[in-house]
Design a protein around this nucleic acid. Structure first.
Lengths: 126, 126
DNA sequence: TTACGTGCAAAAAATTTGCAGTTTC
DNA sequence: GAAACTGCAAATTTTTTGCACGTAA
């Protein structure tokens, strides 16, 4: 555990929204100016492999980068509004059942799962 | 409708597995040597916006690129084995219910959805 | 004809790598 | 002290863009 990793972790933990690698770099540098871009990528990779963070696309609303968030107890669904860009998270019991069912029916051991949805939120739907 | 688009479409339609942009370019060139990389990207973007193809990450088993597949009637779940790399597709009624439920509970109009799962397939699980 | 699509070349965006030096435990 | 981690610089990979020319409808 190094100072750089601590800074990166803190940024992800205290983030109020989903951050991409560049945003994480910028915020981590505010805590520890020495943090380098490659350390961010290396750390993200590590955290991903450890299952401590989830990687998201958020439907690539802007650009082709990825977003990261701390993985807490229960998985949640991400909904991205194609008009206003708002990201909504949703926890669903049905989603949990679906995964259990998948593991049984496909004899597949799930390690990580990602359900992302694009569409129009209540305020933007027509 | 141009010759280049026809070639790209044909490649995606007749693909036996998920292809990324580079693979699509290579195969499209086999049909029409004039196809350029940017035309592939522009066409993929178009097809994506029209809802004719889906864009996948396949858990980024290798590289950071995206994979494309023709969008047919029913959505399916993609399962990627973290060991052998095999991609399995699965159609689930529960998945359909989940989406319906989501639209109702969150007052969100779904345009596109993507459920990807990473883990270990029957042959690789431990 | 005329709006749209294309190749080309160059740039931008996103990520990875080799390496020598530094830090953690 | 050994193993792991880091910054730096450079390279890769993936995607986008401007522009002059070509083509489908």
């Amino acid at each position: 555990m190094t100072a750089q990793r601590r800074a990166i972790l803190k940024v992800i933990e205290t983030a109020s929204k989903h951050l991409d690698a560049s945003q994480i770099l910028r915020k981590a540098r505010a805590l520890d100016n020495s943090v380098d871009r490659s350390t961010v990528y290396r750390t993200l990779d590590l955290l991903k492999r450890q299952g401590l963070i989830d990687e998201l696309d958020l439907m690539h609303l802007k650009g082709e980068g990825h977003y990261y968030e701390r993985k807490l107890g229960r998985d949640h669904i991400h909904m991205a509004c194609l008009r206003c860009g708002k990201i909504t998270e949703f926890v669903s019991e049905t989603f949990e059942s679906l995964k259990t069912q998948l593991e049984r029916d496909c004899r597949f051991h799930i390690v990580v799962s990602r359900l992302e949805v694009g569409g129009y939120c209540a305020g933007c739907r027509h």
